[in-house]
Each structure stands twice: as structure tokens, then as C-alpha cells.
């Protein structure tokens, strides 16, 4: 199993370090043909507009969607990565995105940087709370029927799963709690075993 981290912009190094720490092979993905070399892809935190534009310019968006639709890729998006994965972006539908995850996200849902925060979050499937870091974070304002909400705050869902897609508003890669990444690795391993 190889995990790719989309390395167009953002905190991709922190994701790569965490995957490596968990003993799994990792590679940075910047070009379309590199997408075909990975079983799972992490889309990191960063600026969703910057990542979206670069994805389109170099054809990485097509490569991701094709491999995902072929059933050969799991994807985990954090913060900007969640926005990039979403089907709809409130007030910003024109910005390039993949549209795979059946949700509507609201960018900067908490407000500007002064509303960025950290808190202990109850997460479905975890025994103890997760310390979550929200940075100019998005929130999900609509979830499609196949989307499972794994954690929420007052403003709405912040951690969801839809089959092979996982997305969080917060940044586990900036801490030392590896449980979300472990979940993604299990999901990827399970999915690649199911391939025919």
C-alpha cells in the first residue's frame, strides 16, 4: 500500500510525516501520472483556491477523479482538502473542486483567523476525545444520504465519511494523535483488498 499526499500547496509535509511514522510508504503527488502510483491520497490543509487552480492547470483533478471512479483510490481531505472534495461550496461554486463528496461546505464557517480555535472533540469510533485544531475552518451545511457524520460542533458536521472518502475540517496532522490517519490507512487497506 502506498499513500500519496497532494503536494501542490499547504501542510503536506506534516501529513507525509504522520503516514511515515505509522510505517506506511508515502509519496508526494504533484503531477497526474503520480496519482496512478498511490492507493490512497491525502489532500492537505492550505488554501483551497490555490490548490484548486493548480490541480486544474496541471490536470491532477482529472487524474484523481478517474482513479477514484475506477475504484482504485481512497481520499482523505483536511480543511482545504475537505473543500476541494465537496460537491458544492457555498458562495464560491466557481472555484475549482473535485465534487466527489456529496456535501455542501461553507468556507471560513467560524469566521476569520481570530475565531480559529482548538477543542476536545467527541468522534464516533474513538474511545476518548480528539484534540482538534480548527484554522479558518469550513463546516458542512448539507450532507447527502450516503454521508455518515463522525463528528460535529455547534455549527455543523466537521468529520464525515462517504464510502472511500473521508474529510475533516480540523488538522490531526498538526498534532501527535494518529487515530484519524490510522482510520484512513485501514480504510485504504480494506478498499485495495477488495479490488478485482
Amino acid at each position: 500500500m502506498v499513500i500519496g499526499v497532494l503536494a501542490l500547496q499547504g501542510d503536506f509535509r506534516e501529513h507525509a510525516n504522520m503516514v511515515q511514522f505509522l510505517g506506511v510508504e508515502v509519496r508526494l503527488v504533484r503531477l497526474p501520472d503520480e496519482v496512478d502510483l498511490v492507493d490512497g491520497l491525502i489532500i492537505p490543509g492550505g488554501e483551497s483556491t490555490t490548490m484548486g487552480k493548480l490541480m486544474v492547470k496541471y490536470g491532477v483533478d482529472r487524474a484523481i477523479v478517474d482513479r477514484f471512479n475506477a475504484g482504485r483510490l481512497t481520499i482523505y481531505g483536511t480543511c482545504a482538502g475537505m473543500i476541494v472534495l465537496a460537491r458544492d461550496i457555498e458562495g464560491s461554486q466557481a472555484q475549482p473542486h473535485l465534487g466527489l463528496l456529496d456535501v455542501t461546505v461553507q468556507r471560513n464557517a467560524f469566521g476569520r483567523q481570530k475565531e480559529s480555535s482548538e477543542e476536545d472533540l467527541e468522534v464516533q469510533g474513538l474511545d476518548t476525545p480528539l484534540h482538534a485544531l480548527f484554522i479558518r475552518a469550513p463546516v458542512i451545511v448539507r450532507t447527502g444520504p450516503s454521508v455518515e457524520v463522525l463528528a460535529r460542533v455547534t455549527q455543523g458536521p466537521v468529520y464525515v465519511q462517504q464510502g472511500r472518502l473521508l474529510a475533516s475540517s480540523f488538522h490531526p496532522e498538526l498534532g501527535s494523535d494518529t487515530r484519524i490517519h490510522e482510520h484512513f490507512l485501514r480504510l485504504t487497506e480494506h478498499s485495495s483488498n477488495q479490488e478485482v
Binding site: F12, G45, G46, A80, I135, R136
Partner: peptide
């Protein structure tokens, strides 16, 4: 953390 998001 916000500065981390600017990287690259």
C-alpha cells in the same frame, strides 16, 4: 497553524 497552511 495558520502559517503552516501558507506553506508552498
Amino acid at each position: 497553524g495558520l502559517a503552516e497552511m501558507f506553506k508552498g
